[in-house]
């Protein structure tokens, strides 16, 4: 379990990163963020980049700040820094809650938010969170910068809208201070392991009526998916127990997760049902507590 030979550089600016990626395009280069997914893949020789561009010295990618109505997380901000940030706790508590499920603390000390999003593992927590929070992903590439909505970023398992030579630079999350309730719940066979199913939920209420719901799932398809049927079922209701069941059933009926050795399609659908109910109930109770 040793990687094949590769060349390596650790530049200090985004421009240099893009230049190195372009200059070494023939070597199937990869950018290295926290390395918690890419390095094991290289050790298994499942990924064999000929050139590795390490982003750890690129100062510009380590910003973590709140702008007027947006939380901005640089692509190289470590997950543990986000998890501990008071700004994030206020602006996007859902993200903090989800990070608690990402592997184990030592992995989060190295792993980055941007790395997890760009890796686009279908079972990962953060892509589902980005989708639920309507995050925007900023990229830089040979033809300039782009802003891509999360809904358009994830294209398939380990596949994103990023073009060759293009990198993720920033995640922009609309601030939701004091609005509604949130929840992240997931089911993993063992603590810190890859989840079978995850649910991110944000629910807004006014006078006991749900005015908006954003619910996404991980692990049930090739990308994170929105539980649109559940969102519709909840909107405009008081979200009593019966309505929640209708919402859960509506969302589950649309799922057909691929089975593997950890769970058949039926098992994963059952588990998704449990996670949906748990996520909706928790988000609702928090939304009600807020009032």
């Amino acid at each position: 379990m040793k990687p094949p030979p590769f060349r390596y550089a650790a530049p200090t600016s985004v421009e240099e990163v893009l230049d190195l990626l372009a200059a070494n395009a023939d070597a199937e280069p990869r950018v290295l963020a926290g390395g918690q997914s890419l390095v094991p893949l290289m050790n298994f020789r499942l990924a064999q980049p000929g050139f590795l561009v390490d982003l750890r010295l690129v100062e510009a990618l380590t910003t973590l700040r709140t702008e007027r109505d947006v939380l901005v997380i640089g692509a190289m901000v470590r997950q543990s820094a986000v998890e501990r940030s008071p700004e994030v706790a206020l602006a996007a508590p859902l993200l903090v809650e989800a990070l608690g499920y990402v592997a184990h603390p030592p992995i989060r000390n190295s792993g980055t938010v941007g790395g997890s999003l760009a890796h686009a593992d279908p079972s990962a927590e953060l892509p589902a969170v980005a989708l639920a929070l309507d995050a925007e992903l900023l990229t830089a590439g040979p033809s300039g910068t782009r802003t891509i909505p999360a809904a358009e970023f994830f294209r398939g398992p380990f596949t994103t809208a990023l073009e060759p030579g293009e990198i993720l630079t920033e995640v922009r999350i609309p601030r939701r201070e004091g609005v509604g309730g949130y929840a992240f719940v997931e089911f993993a066979r063992t603590h810190g392991n890859f989840a079978l199913v995850g649910v991110a939920a944000v629910i807004e209420m006014e006078k006991d009526i749900v005015t908006g719901a954003s619910i996404t799932l991980s692990g049930v398809a090739s990308t994170p998916v929105r539980a649109a049927a559940a969102e519709r079922a909840l909107a405009g209701t008081s979200a009593d127990a019966a309505t929640i069941e209708v919402a859960v059933d509506a969302a589950a009926d649309e799922l057909s997760p691929a089975g593997d050795l950890h769970g058949s399609t039926a098992t994963r659908t059952d588990i998704a049902r449990s996670c949906l109910r748990g996520g909706i109930q928790l988000a609702l109770s928090r939304a009600q507590d807020r009032r």
Binding site: R189, L196, H262, G263, S264, A266, T267, D270, I271
Partner: peptide, 11 residues
């Protein structure tokens, strides 16, 4: 007794 086996038995 994995979740898969337990749920299959319950179903």
């Amino acid at each position: 007794m994995t979740p898969d086996r337990i749920l299959a038995a319950i179903r």
